[in-house]
Design a binder for these strands. Structure first.
Lengths: 352, 352
DNA sequence: CTGAAAGCGCTAACAT
DNA sequence: ATGTTAGCGCTTTCAG
C-alpha cells in the first residue's frame, strides 16, 4: 500500500478516459452525431444536439486533442525562441519587463486562439525541436541573419519575428516604430525647452538600435543641435546607470538639459543617478526613459516613459500568425506598432 | 503573383511533407522496417538499417509528432502555470531572476527529455487548456489551496509544484529547504561575530515565507538573541529596499550588525542603502542576500548570496515528472533541494 | 436528418 | 529478417 492511498486518496485508478464513442454509445447515437453536436457543425435537431451535449457533459468527456490535430493536419503549437546569447539566455531575457510581457501576452493571446505556445530556450538544439510539429515559430529577438530563422524557413516552418527578416519568404514580422519613437521623444523634450539633450543607448548591432542611432542623428541634424550620445556596452541596470552617469558628466562641455534613455533601466535608479550628479529633475534636467517598468509612476517626480508596447506587439503578432495559418493570408508580411509616450512630471518644465 | 514570389523566393509550394510511407517506397522497404530502422527497434541487418536511415535523411523525412503521440497515447506536453496575482502575472513573475531561470531551465530540461513546455498565463481560463492534452502541469508558485491545482487533480492530470501540496494524491513536489537556508545563513553570520542580525522578508502567506519566519524564530530562541525582523508588503526592488532601510534604522535600539534579506532585491541597491544609513560593509554590517542576481559578484565588496538554486529545482522537478510519467513511479512524492551559500566579502568580518 | 466507413501518420503485434 | 495489418480517437465525406 502506498503512502498516498493510506492518506485516503483514491489509489489513482488509471481512469480510462471517456472517448467519443463512449458518449455515443451512452446516448444511443453515433460518433458522427455526437461529434457534430459538440462542434456545432452539421444539421441536427435541437433535441438530439442537446442530448448529445448533456451526455458528454455528464460523462466528463474531453476530446483528445492529439487525435483532432492528427485529423486536422496541424498541431496548433507555436514555438517561442529567443535568438540570443547562448550563455544565460532566459535569465537575462525574461527578466526584462519588456520581454516578460511580450512572452506572457503572446502565450495568452495564442491560447485564446486555440494555440499553445512552447518555450524553446536558446540553449536547446534545433534537433530537439525537430519532433515537435510546430505550426509556426516566434523568434523574439533575432540577431542579424539569424541561423535559427534560416533553419526554420528551410524546414518550411513559418517564422514570425521583427522587421529584420523583411523580404524573406515565409517570414513575417511585427515591429515597433523605433525611429518614430525617438523622434516623438526628442520632439517632446524640445518643446519643453531642451536644447542639449543627451541619448543613452546600448551599443548593439540589432536593427532596433541601429534605427535609434540613425533617427537620433537625423533629428539632431534637422534641429541644428549637437549629437550627444553615450553608448553602453550591454543592457542591464548597472551598465545603463553607468552610461547615464557618463552622459551627465559634463566633461568640459555644457551640462545637458535633457536625458533620453533607450534601454530598460530601473526608473528610480536613473533618477537617483541624476540627483547624485547634482541635477534636479525636472528643473535642471528633463528625463524620458524607454521602459515598461511600473515603478516609473511611483517615483518623485513620476518619470515620463516611452512604451514599446510589448502587449500590442504580441497581440498583433499572434493575430497575424493566426491569419497566415488559418486563412493562408500572405499579405501584408509586416505590421508596424506605434510606441506610446506617457508624459509625466519628469519631462515637463515647471510653470514656464 | 504575390510580392514574395516576385522577390525571387519560391512561390512557397505547399510542400507535401515526406511521410514514412514515402521513405519506405523510395527505399524499396516497408513502413515497419523503416520505422524500426529509425527508432533503433527491432532486429534488422545493419545494411538495411543504414539504407533506411540514409534514404530518410536524403528525403528530409521528419516524423509527424502528432501521429506518434496519438499512437503513444501521450502528447508529451507539459503545462507551466503560475498561480499568482491575476493582475500583471507574467510581468512581475518572469522579471524575477529566480523565476526566469526556473522557467528557462524547466523548458530546456523537459525538451531534452522530449517534452514540450506550454506556457499557461495565469489570466487564461482553465477552459482554454481543456483541449490541450497536457500530460502534466507544473504550477510554479501556488497559493494556499490553489484552485488551479485542485481543478487539475480533479481532471486527473498530475501536478508538480512545491511542498504546499504534500499529501494530495496525484500531486508531486520539489521544494527548497527554506528553514535550512535560514539556519545556514544565520549560522554563518553568527560565526562571523554577528550578534544583532536583522532579517527582511516579504509579508506573505506562502509556505516558503511561513517557514522562513518559523526558522528565524527558532534560531533566535536557540541562540538567545532578540528576534529582529522587518516584513515588507510585497516583493520588488523598491519595497524591499525600503524594508532594508527600516531594518537599518536603529529606532532607539542598538544598531544591527548583520542583515539577511530573504527577498530578491538588487544587490547594489541594498549595499547603497546600507551606506546611505552610515554603515560600512562588512566592517559595521555583514550582509547576506537571498538572490540569484549576478550583479552580486560585481559590487564592492561582492555580496554573499544564498541561492535557492532554481536550476536544480527545475531539473529535479522535470526528472521527477518524467519518472512518474514514463515509469509510473509514484514514490517518493517529493524532493528537497538544498540551498547554497556563496560566501563573499560582504559577510566576512575583516581580519578578526 | 442520421449512421457507417474511410483515413490522418505512425507503431507494434502478428504472420511470413 | 522483413512485410502485412490493425488501430490510436477523431472528423468528414458519402450513403441511407
Amino acid at each position: 500500500m502506498t503512502e498516498a492511498s493510506r492518506h485516503g486518496g483514491q489509489p489513482s485508478p488509471p481512469t480510462p478516459r471517456v472517448r467519443l464513442v463512449d458518449v455515443a454509445r451512452e446516448a444511443g447515437l453515433s460518433k458522427t452525431t455526437v461529434s457534430a453536436a459538440l462542434n456545432g457543425t452539421g444539421r441536427l435537431s435541437p433535441e438530439v444536439r442537446e442530448k448529445a451535449r448533456e451526455t458528454a457533459r455528464r460523462m466528463g468527456y474531453r476530446p483528445n486533442a492529439t487525435a483532432r490535430h492528427l485529423r486536422a493536419g496541424r498541431a496548433r503549437l507555436i514555438g517561442y525562441v529567443v535568438g540570443e546569447f547562448a550563455a544565460t539566455p532566459w535569465a537575462t531575457f525574461l527578466e526584462s519587463p519588456y520581454f516578460a510581457r511580450l512572452t506572457g501576452v503572446t502565450a495568452a493571446t495564442a491560447l485564446r486562439r486555440g494555440y499553445a505556445v512552447v518555450l524553446l530556450p536558446a540553449g536547446s538544439l534545433q534537433s530537439e525541436w525537430a519532433d515537435l510539429s510546430l505550426d509556426a515559430v516566434v523568434v523574439a529577438d533575432p540577431v542579424a541573419d539569424d541561423p535559427v530563422v534560416e533553419g526554420l524557413l528551410a524546414a518550411g516552418i513559418p517564422v514570425f519575428t521583427d522587421r529584420s527578416v523583411e523580404g524573406l519568404p515565409g517570414a513575417y514580422w511585427v515591429d515597433v516604430d523605433a525611429a518614430g519613437a525617438v523622434r516623438v521623444a526628442l520632439d517632446h523634450l524640445h518643446e519643453q525647452g531642451a536644447r542639449r539633450p543627451v541619448v543613452v543607448v546600448p551599443d548593439s548591432t540589432t536593427r532596433f538600435h541601429a534605427e535609434v542611432y540613425a533617427a537620433h542623428r537625423e533629428w539632431c541634424a534637422a534641429h541644428g543641435l549637437p549629437e550627444r550620445v553615450v553608448r553602453v556596452g550591454e543592457p542591464g541596470d548597472a551598465p545603463v546607470v553607468r552610461g547615464v552617469e557618463a552622459a551627465l558628466t559634463a566633461d568640459g562641455r555644457e551640462r545637458p538639459d535633457a536625458l533620453l534613455v533607450v534601454a530598460e533601466a530601473s526608473p528610480p535608479l536613473v533618477l537617483e543617478a541624476a540627483r547624485r550628479h547634482g541635477y534636479a529633475v525636472p528643473d535642471d534636467l528633463l528625463v524620458v526613459l524607454v521602459s515598461e517598468d511600473a515603478t516609473a509612476l511611483l517615483t518623485d517626480p513620476p518619470v515620463t516613459t516611452l512604451s514599446l508596447r510589448p502587449e500590442a506587439i504580441a497581440e498583433a503578432g499572434v493575430e497575424h500568425l493566426v491569419a497566415v495559418l488559418e486563412h493562408g493570408r500572405r499579405e501584408p508580411t509586416g505590421t508596424l506598432v506605434e510606441t506610446r509616450l506617457d508624459v509625466r512630471a519628469s519631462s515637463v518644465r515647471p510653470s514656464s
